[in-house]
Computed example of a mutant assay.
Amino acid sequence: MKIAIVVPMAEEAEFYHQYFSSGKKEMFGSTEFEHFSVQGNDLYLGLTGIGKVQAAMNLTSLLAKEKIDLVIMTGSAGSLNAKVRKEDLVLPTEFAYHDAHNTSAGNYVEGQIPQEPARFVLDSPARDQFKAFLDQKGIQYHQGLVVTGDSFISSQAQKDEIIKNFPDALCCEMEGAAFAQVAYHFNVPLIALRAISDNGDENADDDFAAFVKKVGAKAADMIVNFLQESEF
């Protein structure tokens, strides 16, 4: 089985190298993917870069050349819900774009790009298997909608605007919906895991810098243990 792990930031990717021995490196598009063997599976680890275009471009470059069976994305996010706190884990059930406003262009809803699904739902046996793994380990997490946009959210006013359009959103980040959209079009299942680094408010800059490495390590640890203990 061929599995891709995609992360936006170097701070989030570095922890995987503590678990995997050095492997072959290969360029796909503008991203260098490292190739490892884990539990008899081919694993591609790629640092895609920040934002929707980088995420979509570099995952597409990989999926267009390799027959990937499963994509796993990890990284950090900012909370939009008072019950979702710093260092919490979020297992997304679906993604939408919080910066897509196309309701006047036709029969579309907030977060929907014309001619695309309103939300990209993550529903696959692989995701069910990962959820069962977290439950078996007694790991606490939140499930629900995660929203994506190209801005780092760092004020209550920005949060309020997003929450007004997406009252059910748990957190926001900058790549997830783009990864989900690409995976949807390639018909490849996606598992997503986000760890909360900040509250998306005026303290977000300081909180993000302090917590991104910590929560990145937490997410990486969950993914690595899942891959090492699971049979696909």
Rank of each mutant, 00 (worst) to 15 (best):
V38M: 12
T74H: 12
T60W: 01
P92R: 02
K86S: 13
I162Q: 02
I68L: 07
Q112S: 10
G216D: 10
P92Y: 06
A180G: 12
F152I: 12
I113W: 06
F179K: 04
K131T: 14
F232C: 11
D99E: 01
A56C: 07
L59F: 00
A204S: 00
A126Q: 15
Q181N: 04
N81M: 05
I3P: 01
G200L: 12
Q18E: 15
V53E: 08
I72F: 03
G78M: 08
Y141R: 13
N199T: 11
N187T: 12
M73I: 14
G29C: 11
Q18P: 03
A55R: 09
V182C: 09
V224E: 09
Q140C: 10
H17L: 06
D69E: 09
E26N: 11
K2S: 05
P92A: 13
G78L: 07
L193Q: 02
T31P: 03
V146F: 08
N107K: 13
E14I: 14
L45W: 02
E231G: 10
G51Y: 09
K137A: 06
G144A: 08
T60P: 02
K218T: 12
A157D: 09
D168V: 07
D123N: 15
L190M: 04
D128R: 14
D123V: 10
S22A: 13
S124I: 00
V147E: 01
A96H: 03
V71L: 11
E161L: 13
E26V: 13
F186S: 10
Y184Q: 11
D207P: 03
N58G: 09
N225Q: 13
L47M: 14
F130H: 10
E110P: 12
G138F: 08
F226W: 03
G111H: 00
N58T: 08
F20L: 07
